[in-house]
Amino acid sequence: MISAPAFLSNPERFMAFSRWAAPLFGGLAVLLAITGLWLGFTAPEDYQQGDTVRIMFIHVPAAWLSMFAYFCLGIASFLSLVFRHALADAAAKSAAPLGAGFTALALVTGSLWGRPMWGTWWVWDARLTSVLVLFLFYLAYMALRSALDDETKAARACAILALVGLVNLPVVHWSVNWWNSLHQGVTVFAKGGPKMAPVFLVPLLLMVLAYMAAFGALWLVRIRGEVWRRRADAALSRLART
């Protein structure tokens, strides 16, 4: 039995795998999203939140994915730093814009949910602020990547920055316990099992899976593009030499 990163570390094998895995994940994402949205829109209105509970089905998955994408970015950066593997660096580089997109979605949908529920677009509590900081980390990562011309140096510098930023993730996750605020506490993973009614929990989990599948598909597509870009770069420098 060969482990997944080891199996995919070979670029040829990765390209062969992602060729069918990317569309598969994409199709899976569409199916899961359709099911999740159908169940979500047929669910009864929440007695407290009314119709706005529908925003939860796209806000919570985006918030989870903003952290999940950073987690993937961190792992890929670690692998690229330790094994100096080009594919791991391509994976890290490709995860950043996707993660930034999910983080922006989490912030915007959260704001659109907060306005009718709390009567304000934005609350400066630790959790929201941490997500904003996560967004800034994505921006800093992409800025550093584009400011360094030497690609191997950029890869290592960005990997170091990603690992430094990884200490930010626990702060995002646990800050909700440090500060009491308008933001509701952790509902899904609260002590004693989920507190949410199954009519809401099932579509929510389906949407989380849909977002994850979509992230997987887009990630694979971007890594493929990155591999081709490097092949084109290599071919160009070979052509220039002869």
Binding site: I55, I58, T109, V221, R231
Partner: peptide, 27 residues
């Protein structure tokens, strides 16, 4: 609020998908 949230999410997904596919196809 609800339509705006869904609209923006759909827009971001479309943009991410188009950008990723174009990037990949170009290279």
């Amino acid at each position: 609020f609800i339509w705006a949230a869904y609209g923006i999410s759909a827009l971001v997904f479309v943009l991410l998908t188009v950008a990723s596919l174009r990037f990949s196809a170009h290279w």
